[in-house]
């Protein structure tokens, strides 16, 4: 009886897992299939081909989009880590006028839905003349309120005597942050890094608004435009372009799975 229940349990789990993994495996295999085969449920291509990738690469600047996405997401992540922890350090451990106001403002900002500020932000970018620039993709994301609150929370738990010792040892405040706090904050820094990078990497609505020039498009945007505009022409090609976006993430996920799960779940709970 107990045996049977375990078998049912694992069979159920396997079916569930297949539901989550199979579509991606099917997607990956379809990109190596000729058009006639795409409809098949089989995962091993009968007629293996790289045509889908050649076509995709030739028809739209995916290489360029990969560079754009990497550049934008990396810059944003570094900025959020460096500027965010400087802000969080001040908010957690320094006394200054306006600190309560800044705390309150940060929490308030998180409660305002993004849809409210989307259009005014867009008009701001237009007026700044930033349409079709990296600035439009990067600058509005240089600071992240969720990240600042998470870092602040973590920094609050570091003993005051460490700060005092470092001050007595003659360190400046930024130096305390980067040589004492950072090494102690690796868990929270990695959480912030992952969810910031993933957010920037997958963002599509904002680029769709502020970038029209193909050479400046990020991957998800180019992918969407490419698939919708009929540029792909076939299912295999459009899925092949999606692979450019998926593969780096899945590789990173395979290695840092635990960190990914903690990070993305953590950001949602805090944010």
């Amino acid at each position: 009886m107990k045996q049977l229940r375990r078998i049912v349990l694992y069979a159920g789990l396997s079916i569930a897992a297949i539901t989550f993994i199979y579509p991606f495996l099917w997607m990956a295999s379809s990109t190596f299939k000729p058009p006639v085969e795409v409809g098949s449920l089989a995962l091993i291509p009968h007629d293996f081909t790289l045509d889908n990738y050649r076509t995709m690469w030739a028809r739209a600047p995916f290489g360029r989009a990969l560079v754009n996405s990497t550049f934008v997401a990396t810059t944003i992540t570094l900025a959020v880590l460096v500027f965010g922890s400087m802000t969080a350090y001040a908010m957690a451990r320094l006394n200054f006028r306006g600190r309560p106001a800044l705390n309150a403002a940060t929490i308030a900002v998180l409660m305002v839905p993004g849809q409210l500020t989307l259009i005014p932000l867009y008009t701001l970018i237009v007026q700044l003349g930033w349409v079709d620039t990296y600035a439009a993709l990067i600058v509005p994301y240089l600071f992240n309120a969720t990240a600042i609150l998470m870092l602040r929370q973590f920094f609050l738990q570091i003993p005051q005597s460490l700060i005092d010792s470092a001050r007595m040892d003659g360190m400046s405040e930024p130096r305390i942050l980067f040589t004492i706090f950072w090494p102690l904050s690796k868990p929270v820094l990695s959480i912030v890094a992952i969810f910031t990078f993933m957010g920037a990497w997958n963002e599509v609505l904002w680029p769709l608004l502020v970038v029209r020039e193909q050479n400046l498009m990020t991957l998800p945007q180019l992918l969407t435009v490419f698939a919708l505009g009929g540029g792909a022409g076939s299912v295999g090609v459009s899925l092949a372009s999606a692979m450019v976006l998926v593969v780096p993430v899945v590789v990173a996920y395979a290695f840092l799975q635990r960190n990914f799960i903690e990070s993305m779940a953590g950001s949602g709970i805090k944010g």
Binding site: S161, L162, D164, S165, R167, M168, D169, M171, L184
Partner: peptide, 28 residues
Amino acid sequence: PRDRDVAMVFQDYGLYPHMTVRDNLSLG
């Protein structure tokens, strides 16, 4: 504090957890 020529021993010691004893001693 760094300009006062004083040194302090803290209740919870305030040792830098990620540094060796040698580095803790010599950092200042």
